[in-house]
Design a protein around this nucleic acid. Structure first.
Lengths: 187, 187
DNA sequence: ACTTTTGTTGAGTGATTAGTCAATTAAAAA
DNA sequence: TTTTTAATTGACTAATCACTCAACAAAAGT
């Protein structure tokens, strides 16, 4: 298997378990089952590895959010799909999601918080939300505030579902959670 | 001034700016304007300092949430006061709040995530929310989910207000934000 | 077959770090 | 005042870390 990929996977796991700076590069290469030196063949420095990992995971997340969005035609249906795409990806990729959370709450570490591809995906999402505001499907407030609130609710739902995984298949719970989400946005 | 307090303050600032493990104890003592050795007179190890800092800040935060709650008599009024106490403290003590966020998203570092005094305050809050559920003032869902959602919305509001501080005095914005918050909880 | 490029190893290096300690000063107790 | 205790210093140490490098192995190119 690709050693570069093995290193990124090992790094994700250890960074989430131990924290960024508490994880030596030697631990990463050991976890990946490769030699210590090879890490610096694929990544110039440890910080470069962190940057690349962050960008690749964020790209994956922002892509998954819009997954199959074109198959739905109603506005409300699209909003609900975005909502469920978000928490489903975050639960299916819990380590990666925790890594994002960890870095987004840190002013340090990631020098590349805005990557063109990520910014582009973010803009698409922002425009969609804005169009919903214009159509009076959701509250008329600053788009950044709306998006932040959406992300806050989704994050807390993911945290909850990680703690109580059985609720994920509880249709009553999912429906109530959606209502909580949508009621907060409704004008 | 008390050197112990100076060290805790300096640590909060540097931990938020650089991250836990990227901050040497020598940087903390330098920032506090004291000698390197004295840190280990007040705190047995660096981890002990982190633990004590976390507990003291969390205690401060959980206390502030219930501030002046007895002066209000209506249930809805109390809920709104808790809401505004939360984000007001978080903005007035932004470094401390960011430190809490940083640690709560980390599985490592803090060995003392449940301190009796904190747990007690949390229980009081949990019981209050449960009583609101019973009175049908808010949605009938698992209290942990409700509380998580509340915290998620408050956190995103704090993040937003930190970025756009002028909105803090915008009564229209505050009212809309409260509506967003309460609408999500309403049955 | 031969040459060049690319991938891989692990021992080694200089810098940095958490924590110690003997010595000095300040404060409190007697 | 004298004695005892507590606070404070900064040089020191053993351990750890990010990163290098000379050597070797495997592919790829000719």
């Amino acid at each position: 298997m690709d050693k570069r990929e093995l290193l990124l996977e090992a790094a994700t796991k250890l960074f989430v378990e131990r924290g960024l700076h508490a994880t030596p590069t030697s631990a990463i290469s050991k976890e990946a089952g490769v030699s210590a030196g090879i890490l610096f063949h694929y990544f110039k420095t440890k910080d470069d590895l962190i940057d690349e990992l962050y960008v690749s995971i964020k790209k994956e997340y922002t892509s998954s959010i819009m997954n199959e969005i074109d198959k739905i035609h109603s506005d409300l249906g699209k909003l609900r799909l975005i909502w469920s795409n978000s928490w489903n990806w975050a639960i299916d990729n819990n380590l990666k999601f925790k890594f994002l959370l960890q870095l987004d709450n840190t002013s340090c570490a990631v020098r590349v918080k805005s990557h063109p591809e990520i910014v582009a995906k973010f803009e698409i999402f922002k425009n969609l939300i804005q169009s919903y505001v214009d159509k009076e499907l959701i509250k008329n407030m600053d788009t950044y505030f709306i998006m932040g609130s959406m992300f806050g609710l989704i994050t807390s739902m993911v945290t909850y579902l990680t703690q109580f995984p059985e609720k994920r298949n509880d249709q009553v719970f999912i429906e109530q959670a959606w209502e909580l989400f949508y009621n907060s946005l409704k004008p």
